[in-house]
Design a protein around this nucleic acid. Structure first.
Lengths: 154, 154
DNA sequence: CTATTTTTGTTGCGCGTGCAACTAGTGCAC
DNA sequence: GTGCACTAGTTGCACGCGCAACAAAAATAG
């Protein structure tokens, strides 16, 4: 096996590890957020992204990128949250194609209530992943990432 | 903001980054594998896991863990692949609850054809992720993981 | 041996998703 | 101005998913 083959295998291994850790955390968060607050992980992610803008609006397209969702899924997710009164659609005046979304106060309340659950479960899931010899290295690397570097994901 | 709050924020940031990279790669792989070989990422993952056992059987439960799937999803995924002649169910004699699964030669062929696509797209997606300042650190950390340490994910 | 609990895999069901096709609005060429 | 390409968001549709309930086999208790 040559150097090039090694690189391929390292990438594949890294991807398997990444997917495993992601699945572990995602499943844990999904169950906790769903049972305790009636929202899914993507819904939490979108609301958190909106709140992170601190009063700023976000377009559907940005939301789609922030949540790694397709356009259609984003449309329906926003519709769902709007029907529940957690956010509002705001037509943009200068570009009549664009639609801004904004958290309502009810949305912020729910987010505030859900955040402790989210953070606790995330903490717990990471610890559990770190207990697996296969996943521990990635979890360790994750802890080294600093929020300071780079731009927000959305 | 205290030290504890920093830890919470670092975890949340790491998780957002992880999810973003995962989504990027997963979407790219999904499109490529689906259009070029007619299989999904999970299907490829399962077949790859089976092949990795090198002639060994795997039980449904192991497959479920390896692919981060529920029991029901695993049942249907195996049924799908079996209907396409890519793998076979093998009843286990000593434990009549257990069901082993094994790749057929057709399954191995398809896997062999799909692997170059998978590896190339993975390479490309990682490079694209590395171009984002926000995601680059994690991609770099991923390259540092070595396949030698630890046990297989399943 | 019989009763209970646990494990393994399968099905009914509702729901969220991506893709493709579509409508509506913008920007550019000329 | 008119025509054309592009972007933003929505809808029809088929499909895979998780959850809960289930059947069957094994392990454990008495």
């Amino acid at each position: 096996m040559g150097i090039a083959d090694d690189a391929v295998e390292i990438r594949a291994h890294g991807w398997r590890t990444l997917a495993a850790v992601h699945g572990l955390i995602d499943t844990a968060l999904e169950r906790a957020l769903q049972s305790e607050h009636g929202i899914s992980v993507v819904e939490y992610t979108v609301m958190d992204a909106l709140n992170r803008q601190d009063g700023w609006h976000m377009r559907m397209r940005q939301l789609a990128r922030a949540a790694a969702l397709s356009n259609s899924a984003t449309t329906r997710l926003v519709t769902r949250l709007e029907d529940r009164g957690l956010l509002t659609r705001i037509l943009c005046a200068d570009d009549r194609r664009g639609i801004y979304t904004e958290l309502t106060s009810a949305g912020m309340d729910l987010l505030t209530r859900a955040r402790p659950t989210h953070d606790a479960v995330l903490h717990q899931a990471l610890d559990e992943a770190a207990r697996s010899p296969e996943l521990a290295p990635l979890v360790g690397a994750l802890r080294g990432l600093t929020p300071a570097s780079g731009e927000p994901v959305g």
